[in-house]
Design a protein around this nucleic acid. Structure first.
Lengths: 344, 344
DNA sequence: CTGAAAGCGCTAACAA
DNA sequence: TTGTTAGCGCTTTCAG
């Protein structure tokens, strides 16, 4: 039994136009009538028909988000927390988030739907790759978007953690703990974030006068299982014989590495130091707890979405590029003394 | 540079109506013209305007999902996997999922928006409480919905895991391992799932002739931290003095319990056996790995969404209530021998 | 099999 | 300050 605006208008004795204005707080309507109409709307339990309103306004009040490439994705707690930051912000501005969480092969199709079928007003992209073809598409269609991650294109709005510096801090910490031969578990190779984290790793070693050996690099895909497999193989092949610590490009992989080492009979940190990246909750739950680079995950989500909201409202955000600082959280896996969860 | 249906129609030399029919595979249009029009649509890169189409059809092709009450929610891996099952199914039918992941106090508001402002065609509810006021709302508005969880209302469509039987299996397993005094870490009290799991726990004990003691019940809220705190307090107060094993109503709480025991200096399973519920991925990652009751999480999501899709398409699903079986996965925390991740 | 015309419910010029 | 009049882009009777 829904009441339409026309019915409400008739009931009020005003025209649809006035009712529409009153409900949208247009300044051109007399205070009395606005109050009256709003009151009536309440009484008749009137609710605007979003779809109709959207059609007329040529908007959807929906923001699309393309989840990262499989096999990473919603399984990574990082993105969950990120999502929460986004949702929070959007909700308060009356926007909702649409996440076509689909298999990789449909990713393009999902983006097309969002863009060309007018399903969303704006988009949040994550996990940019070296030459990401999603951005030109969005630009061409004039759809506002914000990127989680960074790109060299100067006209793109992005938000990112300090990947390179974070990785540096992680590796410098391992160096401080006395390690010299430090390996790295890399995430997917085509991602910008991977490149930057690996760069930070290399720089730290370089500064310490250590020349990274080819055997010290393990390729994985940002998943736990992927890292577990890669590290297991590496251990089996005795690729680790001279390495005393590993820096993993994210926590999930660090956790996988931890398990592989356990299964191989290596103790962490005694036999092998380990540092992760992201600061997901699980990093504090594993045993030994994981030393990691804490990203301001929620904040990344909030920032990305509020940038996008500004764009959608036709404003021009103060900064196009925002890099948020990260911090090293020292726990057990890198060799520090045990600590309890009690303090948390 | 979007092309509208009118433009396409003009280009084709047909009327909008025919074009609309052709593109929607209406049988009343000649095969030749249909093919021709579809070809032209491709060529001109025509994309239907979803909002307009939705307005005319009085639908949105969007399904809303109300995430569980805080503090549980998107932080629980269970729901992520569940979500994935839903998304998969919906995507293949051209539906998308809207998840207003908002603070608890806005939950009602979010539901209202979805319902009354015609933002969604149907809803998936989770975590029913004893007297859940969301269902009457939806029923009154005639909005199709499916429940994850169960209810006594006979006319509601629901999908659920076998909570009671699962809990029984868990506790019977502990009994088999020689435990008699088995405690339970309960989830939020007002949830139906909690009641059923606790019931299963009680029944198993009863059948074994064990009379559960009041001290054996710990109250928590389905979160890791909540369980950590509850168990820590319990241990401090020496409430555990006669208990040799715990059944946690979900894995997250089991993990929290694990940490609390570690911090207290108790070894699992030697000093205290532990079994969880859900079978989230993390249950196999912790140390010791967690014996748990595996729910068919993905399948729950798929089933719930395909039930809903049927309702949305005006069909009548074969079953109103679907209870999917669960299975006990025995790992280390209940006293079984260590096992490697390699097999996974 | 195809077309004309009337909406879907709301917004936004343009008048008054 | 308010009302009139066209749409937004698509679907769907109802005729032909």
């Amino acid at each position: 039994m829904t009441v339409t605006m026309k019915q409400l208008a008739d009931e009020c004795g005003f025209s649809k136009a006035t009712v529409s204005r009153a409900l949208n707080n247009d300044s051109r309507v007399k205070d009395d009538t606005r109050r009256y109409i709003q009151e009536m709307a309440q009484r008749y339990n009137y609710r605007p028909h979003t779809v109709a309103s959207n059609l007329a306004k040529r908007q959807t009040r929906i923001v699309g988000m393309l989840m990262p490439q499989a096999p990473r994705g919603a399984a990574d707690p990082f993105f969950l927390e990120f999502l929460q930051g986004i949702n929070e912000t959007l909700f308060h501005s009356g926007y909702s988030l649409l996440i076509p969480q689909v298999p990789l092969q449909y990713m393009q199709q999902a983006l097309d739907q969002m863009i060309y079928e007018h399903r969303v007003d704006g988009v949040i992209l994550t996990e940019p790759t070296q030459k990401d073809e999603r951005m030109p598409r969005l630009q061409q269609e004039g759809i506002p978007f914000v990127l989680l991650g960074r790109t060299s294109q100067p006209d793109v709005y992005w938000v990112d953690g300090e990947n390179r510096q974070g990785a540096r801090k992680a590796v410098e910490h391992l160096l401080d703990m006395g390690h010299r031969r430090i390996g790295v578990i890399e995430g997917e190779a085509n991602q910008v974030a991977t490149a930057n984290r690996v760069r930070g790793y290399e720089e730290a070693l370089q500064d310490a006068g250590v020349n990274p050996h080819g055997d010290w690099r393990l390729n994985a895909d940002y998943t736990r299982q992927g890292a577990y497999d890669a590290v297991s193989r590496w251990l089996d092949q005795r690729g680790h014989r001279r390495v005393t610590a590993l820096f993993a490009c994210n926590d999930l992989m660090a956790i996988g590495a931890l398990q592989a080492m356990k299964d191989f009979g290596l103790r962490v940190p005694d036999d092998m130091g380990l540092v992760g990246f992201d600061g997901i909750e699980a990093s504090s739950c594993v045993d030994p707890s994981l030393t990691t680079v804490q990203q301001p995950i929620l904040q990344l989500g909030r920032t990305a979405s509020s940038q996008l909201l500004q764009l959608l409202q036709g404003q021009c955000p103060a900064h196009r590029q925002i890099a948020l600082p990260v911090s090293l959280v020292v726990r057990e896996s890198s060799g520090a003394p045990r600590q309890s969860l009690r303090s948390s």
